[in-house]
Design a protein around this nucleic acid. Structure first.
Lengths: 180, 180
DNA sequence: CGCCGAGTTGAACTGAATCAAGAAACGTGG
DNA sequence: CCACGTTTCTTGATTCAGTTCAACTCGGCG
């Protein structure tokens, strides 16, 4: 689904207070556009975000992030290039904003903070591997069921189209799956 | 394909000399079996390794690693549980062995080493995301072509069956793709 | 009231899986 | 160096999950 660490929002406040800003976005607002060099990471305090990008002219949802979730222009941050990701608030959301470069400077020389960030990166990595294996081995229906099992109210909060592209299927297929 | 960092092998020697061991394995040898708690990471100095696991009774190749590549029981290391991965030498290979727990202790308190490991984890993460997107958007043939473009001699060095399961397709499909 | 975006449904098509059989390549022992 | 069995690879016929494209429904809302 998206990385979720219990109390992430509090952990970030406790450790990176000097460099975070807090902001509330309303439903539909774009927190960050693609083609940007602003390598910001958003930690969701409340609400719901998604990241998406365009592939073959179609929107693809890369990630959802809810409370204590973390979202950002993933590989672009790490490759230090323009981002292909857009970040959008799907609901009115309060988020902590952390700029990756500032973060990188801020933790330099601090073994404990380096370690904390490393652990978070490791968790993000695990997420990705699990999603990869999920995609290889399970059918569209199984992936959908799995997603809803982990996030029961997703259907009430997010468009079918977003869910479909997150699952890597078409909206028509998702509709048929849902229609039993 | 697998993580490959130029000079990784040298970087590891330079920074983790006290805790690495070096070993040469012959073709077909299993460096580490599944269901193990030995959370070892292998850095390939020369040769070729693969990690694989069983899904529905079938072998699935998770990763290949060649020179300066890194391989290990991925998420199991990070989740501190038994590994489902087997690591096998596909050719006679000289590898550096790094135990994750020792590593974790060794770098504790050392901001520079923590940072180095974090950067490596970040690269591994990027690999995974790229592989995920690759899988979502491209056909079996495209994925195969892409793989071979990045690793031209793979066919001479690895079984078709291993390549197929790495790509997430059956061996029959791979054979048809290759037969033009 | 009529439009608009979101979701559903239908029919035809297709990439890849499955199952089953052969063909090639390979290595080990006589 | 050949003969054998085993493992690897190919080929064919069939099936199926998911795509595509197009039309249709539904619930706001201006």
């Amino acid at each position: 689904m998206s990385l979720k660490i219990k109390n992430l929002s509090q952990i970030i406040r406790d450790n990176f207070d000097e460099i975070i800003t807090e902001h509330t976005f309303t439903k539909g607002e774009i927190l960050q556009r693609d083609n940007s060099f602003k390598h910001n990471i958003f930690i969701v305090h409340s609400g719901l975000l998604r990241s998406f990008y365009f592939h073959d002219g179609k929107e693809v949802t890369a990630l959802f992030a809810l409370e204590n979730g973390l979202i950002g222009p993933g590989d672009s941050i790490l490759k230090n290039k323009k981002s292909k990701y857009n970040i959008e608030a799907l609901e009115t959301s309060t988020v902590l904003i952390l700029n990756y470069k500032e973060l990188d400077n801020f933790i330099k020389g601090d073994a404990i903070k380096e370690r904390l960030i490393r652990h978070i990166v490791q968790l993000i990595y695990i997420e990705s591997v699990e999603r990869l294996e999920n995609l290889i081995f399970y059918s569209a229906k199984e992936r959908y069921d799995h997603l809803i099992a982990h996030f029961p109210d997703l259907n009430q909060r997010v468009n079918q189209g977003h869910i479909a592209s997150f699952l890597g299927i078409t909206q028509e297929t998702l509709s048929r799956i849902r229609g039993k």
